[in-house]
Simulated assay, not measured.
Amino acid sequence: MEPAAATSYPVARDAPPRPAPHTAQLGQGRPRGDWGRWALLAVVLLLLAGSFAWGVYRSRHRPRNLAFIIVTYYLVALLYCCLAKLNLLRRDDPAAAPERWRVRMAVWGVSVALANTIAGRVADAMPNAGLKIAVWVLTCVGIGAGFYFFFVREGAGRRTTDGRALHEVSPEQRV
């Protein structure tokens, strides 16, 4: 008869250490288990596509309304694509700096076009000239603030608030 300790029962062991999470970089896939984010994205895209289809259906006999809906939908989709590409480009990679600049310019141009498209439509719906002017003034202020924070501000998009480069900051300080 064999002793009880010699039988082959499974032994509980420590779980293997989990690898450190990776940041989103060009050429790497998303981490596993990110299904909640994808589900939210799918719902938002379905709602956006549904509202686009409903808007096209309702304005099918009015060419100006139809053009507004199509242009706005296109600009929102283009802005999303540009922001996703900008998010993928690493800030601390000097080789990606020229491409980041081009993508930031594209984001800026699409944002200005979208703001002007919507402001023009809202201003047309205003009953008097004072409100139309107010819509355009607020649009210009918003565009100017975006330009300042995106391009003019010292270290816009390149450094942290205390002047250090982003790759010099520890992960604990980024949170």
Rank of each mutant, 00 (worst) to 15 (best):
M1T: 03
E2V: 04
E2D: 09
P3I: 01
P3K: 05
T7K: 14
Y9W: 14
P10S: 13
A12C: 13
R13A: 10
R13K: 12
P16T: 05
R18N: 02
R18V: 08
A20D: 08
P21D: 07
H22A: 10
T23Y: 00
G29D: 05
R30E: 08
R30T: 04
R32T: 06
G33Q: 09
G33I: 03
D34S: 07
W35T: 06
W35M: 03
W38C: 03
L40Q: 13
L40Y: 03
A42R: 12
V43I: 15
L45G: 07
L46S: 15
A49G: 11
A49C: 04
A49V: 05
F52Y: 15
F52Q: 07
F52H: 11
G55V: 08
G55F: 05
R60D: 11
H61Y: 11
P63L: 12
P63E: 12
R64Y: 05
N65M: 13
L66V: 03
A67P: 04
F68N: 05
I69E: 03
T72Q: 10
Y73T: 13
Y73P: 00
L75P: 00
L75S: 05
L75W: 10
V76F: 06
L79Q: 09
Y80S: 04
C82D: 08
K85V: 08
L88I: 00
L88K: 04
L88S: 09
L88Q: 06
L89T: 06
R91K: 07
D93I: 00
A95N: 12
A97C: 03
P98R: 09
E99R: 08
R102I: 00
V103P: 00
R104P: 06
W108M: 11
V110M: 08
S111D: 10
T117E: 12
I118K: 04
I118A: 13
G120A: 11
G120L: 07
G120T: 08
R121Q: 14
A123C: 09
A125N: 13
M126P: 03
M126I: 10
N128E: 11
N128C: 10
N128V: 09
A129D: 15
G130F: 09
G130E: 11
K132Q: 15
L138E: 13
T139P: 02
C140F: 14
V141F: 14
V141C: 14
G144A: 15
A145C: 12
F147D: 05
Y148C: 08
F149R: 04
F151E: 04
V152R: 09
R153C: 02
E154H: 11
G155I: 00
G157H: 01
T160D: 09
T161G: 03
G163N: 09
G163P: 02
R164F: 00
R164N: 02
R164P: 00
R164H: 02
A165K: 06
L166H: 01
S170A: 13
S170T: 15
Q173E: 15
Q173R: 10
V175Q: 04
V175I: 00
